[in-house]
Amino acid sequence: MPEENWSLIIGSRSKWYQMDLKSIWKYRDLIMLMVRRDFVSVYKQTILGPLWFFIQPVFSTLIFTVIFGNIAKISTDGIPSILFYLGGLTLWNYFSDCLNKTSNTFVQNAGIFGKVYFPRLVVPLSVLISNLYKLGVQFLLFLSVWFYFILIKRNVSPNWSYFYLFPILIILMAGLGLGFGLVISSLTTKYRDLTFLLGFGVQLMMYASPIVYPVSMVPEQYRIYILANPVSPVIETFKFIFLGNGYFSWTALGYSFCFMAILLVSGMLVFHKVEKSFMDTV
């Protein structure tokens, strides 16, 4: 019999270059349907619906304003404290939501994954997109407060010429959240130990990012450590663009980007390695 052209070969293990990214495109409808499912299922039988997206950042901001602004009296670099905290939290929330929800991809979806094959990356990608809704709503909240301070109080001066960087900031946060999430979800299929560290780790990372304090307040010799956190340059750039006050450098942003790229690639590699056999160990 002549050499046959098989359309699919299932073997014991596959090489990294067999990662099938093309098929993700084929399943783009599934991604969008999952986004819709996430959106609809969370707010079914609630009266306020997506308005609940507002509540969380409003409360966090109020608490931060009281504790860090009024009690601890941490400087906000002359920015109105509500705007300062809200600005920091908007992108941070997106990152931490992406990270939290993608980091249990395998465990959470074991039921579906055990029954049907589709590119597993579809699930974390749909998480990134469905979280965009929340980001959008929270960003609107930020914008309305921001306009209030720009138009009425007139004490905020944004760097208008850098606005084009904003979408890149979102991509950076999505990439970082996904990258960390992929690595963690792959590592926790067999040994769940890491999940105990996750909640704690995310909280720790928030305090290692300039959200409740400005980078300028950090002593010179520690600043490098804060900026080594790949999330920090993103948040600082956001503040730089919208609040006109923050640490901005192309090097720092480039560092974040490189960090994200490497993390994402390695995350996808371990994810790919694990997805073939995780059903036996999850």
Partner: peptide
């Protein structure tokens, strides 16, 4: 066969 899990050894070819 449905690619939910992979074999330990051996191979499946599908057209």
């Amino acid at each position: 066969l449905s690619q939910v899990t992979s074999p330990t050894t051996g191979i499946v070819k599908i057209k």
